[in-house]
């Protein structure tokens, strides 16, 4: 999980429970990363350049990342036990080739979902005969994504 132009990059990082994640800082200014989310509380004291040892995300859940110096920086580590998971591409597509026949629960999540968006959990039945397809439509507009702050001179007084 990198830090570029005062943003966490990627904005959302999905990982399997137990994954170790490093937090490099590619900005020329120092950041101070923390999370007080119940599934992972941690702090990385002010740093730039050399990263800290990786942080192990050992419990499933959504971990919200912040920088104690730059409040507008926000990022998410999505820690999951699901057998298959991933991030959608620019077109909103995600493919998995690893699933056999069976009944599956599919859950779609984004930090940008509107607060009143109805549940995006769906069920899908897969058979060996043909690939399964599931379309999930949002009923509310997504919230805006954080913008990059390319001007390193900004201190926000």
């Amino acid at each position: 999980m990198d830090q570029i132009d005062q943003r966490f990059v990627p904005f959302v990082l999905p990982v399997r429970t137990g994954t170790a994640v490093t937090f490099p800082n590619s900005d020329s200014i120092a950041h101070q990363v923390y999370s007080f989310s119940p599934s992972k509380r941690f702090e990385l004291g002010l740093y730039r350049g050399r990263p800290y040892p990786p942080v192990v995300f050992d419990k499933p859940g959504i971990v919200v990342l912040g920088c104690n110096i730059h409040d507008k920086m926000i990022g998410y580590v999505y820690v999951t036990d699901a057998p298959e998971f991933g991030k959608t591409d620019e077109q909103g597509m995600w493919r998995s080739g690893a699933l056999g026949a069976g009944h599956y629960e599919v859950e779609v999540w984004s930090p940008l979902l509107a607060r009143d968006e109805p549940s995006l959990a769906r069920a899908i039945e897969l058979t060996d005969a043909k690939p399964g397809e599931l379309e999930v439509h949002l009923t509310r507009a997504l919230r805006p994504e954080p913008r990059p702050q390319r001007d390193a001179k900004i201190r926000d007084y």
């Binding site: 001007d151 001179k153 900004i154 201190r155 926000d156 007084y157």
Partner: peptide, 17 residues
Amino acid sequence: FYAPISLENRAIGWQSV
């Protein structure tokens, strides 16, 4: 230090952006 009043002076050295 400066009281949080200005919305312009956001750059290092309290300079306007």
